[in-house]
Design a protein around this nucleic acid. Structure first.
Length: 872
RNA sequence: GGGGCUGUAGCUCAGUUGGCAGAGCGGUACGUUCGCAAUGUACAGGCCAGGGGUUCAAUUCCCCUCAGCUCCA
């Protein structure tokens, strides 16, 4: 009997300790961001081990135990809106699990789970019920004969409850679950079979027996080496151990509820699932913890992918804080509490704390701004409704626009509308929402294609194995053509048994070069992975090459060398970025070509010029050391010990390739320079945003960097010559020049208007009954207008019409009317404008017009004079 | 990946059948009354995001680019 378990930390230790004693390797929790591209988050304890179960990789250990961070939100099971309503649902949770990779099976797994539950956890065996799959006699027998559970507490359930499948195909098998009877006050007797909702008979342990392989045709074959995957929710067991009715009162969540209470001055009612405020507090507690854990693993709030899911989770929480009437920021305090609760089990929280706080504080601020803007728009809608026919209904369309375009949640729209006795047309809203979904799905469908070629590739891989890559050591080799497929008239896909061509991965572009034999040649334009391990050369064939012949494969060495420099420089830049900006900088993508390198990374603000300069200094200092670049294979453990950081999104087997360039140590399978000095020079040429919290830098190296510096210097030299200055004084000289131009412009403007005013007196004196109509050539349209305004300024003038040929050869007309004249100024010149072949007008007491036909100007002015005389 | 919205003074934003740009706050200067605050007057501050097109004329209409916001996948 182990020590009494009181806290989450004690539970985690007791659990892993139990299985470590039984030969299991303790595996640290993997990131919430999975390597598996088909899922958004790590959703179960087995996710990190999936390659071992599927057989893609060989497990480095036969038995493992873990406490895995998990998150479930978005994706297929979109139950985000339910979190907080129930006693047990969370976005973030931890899963206890023990695993066997083709090692022990039911006869060990079942008794161990019983021993753990009764002796370590201390549950009363008489209160436990077991369910097995209806076909699984073996499991039932073990539970009964070996463990001693009476038959009346073992029940059989169907596929829906007790059968597990990874996907359409692949490993699958029956499950067995352990339930605890919480007593008559929670519902009627009769075991889990009689309690589908699990109110009284609470399921807390699930054992999956992976013993079959599901084929495409629906048949199942037995796996030669069956495996075990178990899972139990930490929070659930904690609630049971701590004698609480729900997970909300356990020590991993209740401190957050207490913090939420004080931050919002709201009272929490334990066990009340009807009370709206208590619901909001639970949402705040849960989402604060989830968001904290997600940011800790490198998820950033953004408008796509998992970042978007995080944003939705987080904003849902802020929305509830808002509903509770809090207008101060609440999340920073909750995040601090979450860090405090979780940091012992997840130590990276300590080092990342300031960063997490920064990201989430900023996110709350920005969302509160969104809410404020939305509120204004909503007010406008309300006042529009008052004057409309339907006085008491806000259209679903409006509610949708508010939500879709401005991010104002429907729930808040309804809440606020409700306060004013206004309905929201939900049906219409749903219709709009549905249309939006359909659009997005239709767009997605276009992208899916061609499974057939994939099957061909797989067959190639099955018969010949992986393509041997010799490109680290040599630029050329002889090889055998395994397959050659013509794509269209000229381009072909070629597969070799061995190749020096690097296939695009880790951001590095594929090699180019030639594949030739006596009878023909292929100019290779790109090399990619058709499947993991299978390298595909794409190129143009001249002459004849067929499958089976021997060829010489040679890469374009110049291109490869430039690419090498850029790739090594990418690592050094990554190092420098982390040094200057912080360890939260994570690679989000990269492109390494011969010409330049592009590096996308997570960061929350634009880089300042000073920061870019620092980065360049640090990076180039690494270049100047001219230290040897080491590129070697080693075990994963040794690499991590050396402090290597893994590139995001890459998948690594047990043996990994490590790259050491200067002080940068990373896992990387690319091709690299021999020494940092080979890079020559790293120059950042661009920095920008590619989405919220995502930045991109572009840089050049080697000859390209030299070219860049020379051309920049040339530009500066030219400027120096133009301004007759030198580089040191250029900036000052230029700013002085700009100020001067501005000053001169202002002066010119005031002189012009003074001149116009001066001439105005002359024109005023020529007025006939308060009307001035004159031709003035050589002025710009705006000067002409200025003049007209100056003339009109005299009290006796009632109307002015000026016309003239402008300096650019067009005709300009302007009309202005004095105070007390009701005829619009435009009327005075509308006809004249037509006569000069233009149009025009204006409104009120000043109008301008123009045309092209200068010959008709005098005639046009006569017409204008006539129009003007009518109004006086 | 697919939609929607926005970009105007240091900040928050106005600006309709296209006619040379405004408000409030902030800033500066000079006053007034006085409680390190209020208030009056004046002034400065704009390639109306950038580039093309239509037009006699584009902040306004059309196209493209860039940036930001937002929803869906």
């Amino acid at each position: 009997m182990a020590a009494e378990i009181r806290t989450a930390n004690e539970l985690r230790k007791a659990f892993t300790g139990f299985f470590e004693q039984r030969g299991h390797t303790k595996v640290e929790s993997a990131s919430l961001i999975p390597h598996d591209p088909t899922i958004l988050f790590t959703v179960a304890g087995m996710v990190p081990f999936k390659p071992y179960f599927v057989g893609d990789e060989v497990a480095p250990y036969k038995r493992a135990v873990s406490v895995q961070k998990c998150a479930r939100a978005g994706g297929k099971h979109n139950d985000l809106d339910d979190v907080g309503r129930t006693k047990r649902h969370c976005v973030f949770f931890e899963m206890l699990g023990n695993f066997s990779f083709g090692d022990y099976f039911k006869t060990d797994a079942i008794p161990w789970s019983w021993e753990l539950v009764t002796e370590v956890f201390g549950f009363d065996g008489d209160q436990l019920w077991i369910t097995v799959h209806e076909s699984d006699d073996e499991a039932e027998q073990i539970w009964h004969d070996q463990v001693g559970v009476p038959m009346n507490r073992i029940q059989r359930l169907g596929d829906a409850d007790n059968f597990w499948q990874m996907g359409e195909t692949g490993p699958c098998g029956p499950c067995s679950e352990i339930h605890i009877d919480r007593g008559p006050s929670f519902g009627p007797d009769g075991g889990p079979l009689n309690d589908p909702k699990g109110d009284r008979f609470l399921e807390f342990w699930n054992l999956v027996f992976m013993q079959f392989n599901q084929d495409k045709d629906g048949s199942r074959t037995a796996l030669p080496k069956p495996s075990i995957d178990t899972g139990a929710g930490l929070e659930r067991i904690l609630a049971l151990k701590q004698g609480k009715d729900s997970i909300w009162e356990t020590d991993v969540l209740f401190p957050l509820i207490e913090q939420a209470q004080s931050a919002t001055s709201t009272k929490y009612l334990i066990g009340d699932y009807e009370d709206k405020s208590s619901f909001s507090l639970r949402v705040l507690a849960e989402h604060a913890r989830s968001a904290t854990m997600l940011v800790n693993d490198g998820v950033f709030p953004s408008n796509e992918g998992r970042g978007y899911v995080l944003r939705r989770i987080f904003r849902r929480a802020v929305r509830h804080a808002y509903l509770l009437g809090t207008d101060k920021l609440v999340m920073p305090k909750l995040v601090e509490t979450a860090v405090e609760i979780m940091q012992e089990a997840h130590p990276t929280l300590k080092t990342n704390k300031d960063f997490i706080l920064g990201v989430l504080t900023k996110e709350e601020e920005s969302f509160r701004q969104t809410l404020k803007n939305g509120l204004n728009l909503l007010e406008n809608e309300f006042s529009a409704i008052k004057t409309s026919k339907k006085k008491s209904t806000l259209s679903g369309k409006s509610a949708f626009v508010l939500h879709d375009t401005y991010g104002f949640p429907l729930e808040l729209t309804q809440e606020i509308a409700g306060e004013r006795n206004i309905n929201v047309d939900i049906t219409e809203f749903e219709t709009e929402m549905h249309a939006q979904r359909t659009r997005a799905k239709a767009a997605r469908k276009g992208a899916a294609s061609a499974d057939e070629t994939l099957a061909q590739y797989r067959q190639l891989l099955d018969t010949h194995g992986q393509t041997k890559f010799v490109g680290y050591e040599s630029d050329s080799c002889t090889a055998k053509v395994l397959s050659l497929v013509a794509l269209d008239d000229s381009s072909v896909e070629v597969f070799l048994d061995v190749t020096p061509f690097y296939a695009e991965s880790g951001g590095q572009v594929g090699d180019r070069g030639t594949i030739r034999c006596p009878s023909g040649e292929i100019k290779v334009t790109d090399t990619v992975f058709a499947l993991p391990g299978l390298r595909k050369h794409i190129g143009v064939l001249s002459g004849e090459i067929v499958a089976g012949v021997e060829v010489t494969a040679t890469i374009d060495v110049n291109l490869r060398n430039s690419t090498r420099k850029n790739h090594t420089a990418t690592h050094i830049l990554h190092y420098a970025l982390r040094k200057v900006l912080g360890d939260h900088v994570k690679q989000a993508g990269s492109l390494v070509s011969a010409e330049r390198l592009r590096f996308d990374f997570s960061h929350y603000a634009p880089l300042s010029n000073v920061e870019i300069e620092q980065i360049e200094r640090i990076a180039n200092a690494q270049v100047l050391t001219n230290s040897d670049v080491k590129n070697y294979e080693t075990s994963k453990e040794k690499a991590t010990q050396a402090g290597a950081i893994a590139f995001f999104g890459d998948k690594y087997g047990d043996m990994v390739r490590v790259l050491e360039a200067g002080d940068s140590i990373e896992l990387c399978g690319g091709t690299h320079a021999a020494a940092t000095g080979d890079i020559g020079l790293i120059k950042i040429v661009e920095e920008g945003s590619i989405g919220s919290n995502l930045r991109r830098i572009e840089a050049v190296t080697g000859q390209n960097a030299v070219d860049y510096v020379i051309s920049t210097a040339r530009t500066i030299q030219k400027l120096n010559e133009l301004l007759d200055t030198n580089s040191a004084a250029l900036v000052e000289s230029m700013s002085r020049k700009i100020a001067e131009v501005k000053e001169l412009n202002d002066e010119l403007k005031s002189l012009r208007s003074a001149a116009a005013r001066g001439r105005a007196a002359e024109f005023v004196s020529k007025n006939k009954g308060g009307v001035v109509v004159q031709r003035v050539d050589g002025l710009s349209p705006s000067d002409l207008r200025e003049l007209a305004l100056a003339i009109r300024a005299s009290k006796e003038i009632k109307a002015v019409v000026l016309g003239g040929v402008t300096s650019t050869g067009g005709v300009a007309l302007v009309a202005a009317t004095g105070a007390g004249v009701s005829t619009p100024a435009g009327d005075l010149i509308s006809q004249a404008a037509k006569m000069v072949g233009g149009g025009g007008g204006g409104k009120g007491d000043i109008a301008t017009a123009g045309g092209k036909n200068a010959a008709a100007l005098d005639e046009a002015l006569l017409a204008a004079a006539q129009a003007s005389s009518k109004i006086v």
